[in-house]
Design a protein around this nucleic acid. Structure first.
Lengths: 110, 110
DNA sequence: AGTCTTTTGGTACTAAAGTATGAATCCTAT
DNA sequence: ATAGGATTCATACTTTAGTACCAAAAGACT
């Protein structure tokens, strides 16, 4: 009787342990995949020769800010932002800031 | 000896079964969560009183199209698109189309 | 038929975005 | 020190975007 109880207990332990091993490994796998799909592709940013400041402007655009507002946020003039935006658009091959957003999301750089 | 072999075999089976039970349940849970976070909130669209046509225009904006291009896509004039955009902005409480995109994403309506 | 919403579109305007060009200043690596 | 990229900013200009207002036409509902 006591032997059977020990056996059942052991089986239960094994079941529980492997249940959690299964969930843990699966979770890791999912995290890896979701990370890949949401991670920012810094290599592409470099490959497109987008500068640090230009990237900050791009983020401002994605927040829905106007050129003036981006300038206030980064403590520079609206003229400067216009220059950055113009260069950004040509680097992203976009005609408008909304298209730049779409392309940047597609390239996973924002 | 044969008893021990059977026991080991049983334990292995149990381990494997519960391993897969663990991965299966975990997968289901993850799918559920990822679905919730990417699903479009039709109730909010209705609550904001965004019409069908206005929503189509919103999608055009999210594709990075100009008003003229959206008009060509939907076979209506640019004037009509301007009207829709203007109404859309006030319904979304946005000042610009880029801000409308940001808000719409936040509300999970695009 | 009549009402209500949606969709359409025009005019006239203001505001914002975007281009082109030139130039000064700042950083950085050699 | 200096060459080269990055950042800054201005002027002048063209193009889009956005607002305000009005009004006709189309659909849906009772």
């Amino acid at each position: 009787m006591s032997g059977d109880l020990n056996l059942e207990f052991a089986i239960a332990i094994i079941a529980i342990v492997f249940f959690f091993v299964g969930t843990y490994l699966n979770k890791k796998s999912f995290q890896k995949h979701s990370k890949v799909s949401t991670e920012i592709n810094h290599k592409k940013i470099k490959a497109l020769e987008i500068s640090k400041r230009e990237y900050e402007v791009l983020l401002g655009i994605s927040e829905g800010l106007s050129n003036k507002e981006i300038g206030e946020k980064l403590f520079v003039s609206e003229s400067t932002i216009k220059t950055h935006v113009s260069n950004l658009l040509s680097k992203l091959n976009a005609k408008r800031r909304t298209q730049a957003l779409q392309i940047a999301k597609d390239l996973q750089i924002i």
